[in-house]
């Protein structure tokens, strides 16, 4: 048990540090990398909470795919940092008010009355043969099947919307058509002519060609 506690505090501290660095570091690429570290620490904490499926899915989906694309975009953007920091002093009061309100809401919900240790006793630890994935799959495809499908349709709609926003109609492109490339036959491109390998004139070579141009022809 103390080992688990040690791991928990180590990774919780690392996670907080990384999360603060996400917004405090100057370079945006480094900010994204700190965000990746934050996700990774969160995955470790979930793993400690015996949610191994969620933990690995977090690494797989967020760290492995979403953040890579994020990094991709951030690396290629040309961000003007001076312009970004411009209205900092002017907007600071609003920022403080909004964050205080947000903190208040979170504090109201997350305090002991609802989420105290007596309201949320730790679940009984499962045996080594208990499969998290099986339990999750059973409720996901029976009890929560309807919300699951709705979420899937939502994602599909978002995908179609993104494509239709960026699609600017069929253009006159000069790109290749793969089907036509594959249909190409050897006979379309290549004509093989049978001919003697030596010209008949040279078949009986003269002993010493004196003219240099004759040797080239």
């Amino acid at each position: 048990m103390p080992v688990e506690k040690l791991i928990f505090y180590a990774f919780a501290a690392l996670m907080l540090f990384a999360a603060v660095r996400v917004i405090s570091v100057r370079n945006s690429v480094q900010a994204v990398l700190f965000l990746v570290l934050t996700f990774f620490c969160a995955a470790v904490l979930w793993m400690l909470a015996e949610a191994e499926f969620l933990a690995i899915t977090l690494v797989l989906v967020y760290v492995g795919a979403v953040m890579v694309l994020f990094l991709f975009v951030v690396m290629m953007l040309d961000v003007d940092y001076a312009a970004m920091r411009e209205g900092f002093a002017r907007l600071l009061p609003f920022g403080i008010i909004v964050s205080l309100m947000f903190f208040g809401v979170l504090f109201y919900i997350l305090r002991d009355r609802f989420f105290g240790p007596e309201n949320l006793p730790p679940p009984p630890p499962h045996g080594a043969d208990y499969s998290n994935v099986e339990a999750l799959g059973e409720v996901l495809y029976t009890e929560y099947f309807y919300p699951f499908e709705i979420a899937a349709v939502l994602l599909l709609v978002a995908m179609v919307a993104a494509i239709s926003l960026t699609f600017r109609g069929r253009q006159q492109r000069k790109g290749q058509q793969v089907s036509r490339q594959l249909q190409a036959q050897k006979s379309d491109r290549l004509k093989i002519v049978t001919m003697a390998s030596e010209s008949p004139r040279k078949a009986t070579p003269e002993p010493a060609p004196t003219d240099p141009e004759e040797g080239q022809s």
Partner: peptide, 19 residues
Amino acid sequence: NVGLLYLLAMTSIGVYGVI
């Protein structure tokens, strides 16, 4: 129990080193 997912997750993290 989630060995397959773990493998997939690990192979997908490697791309960070490259980037």
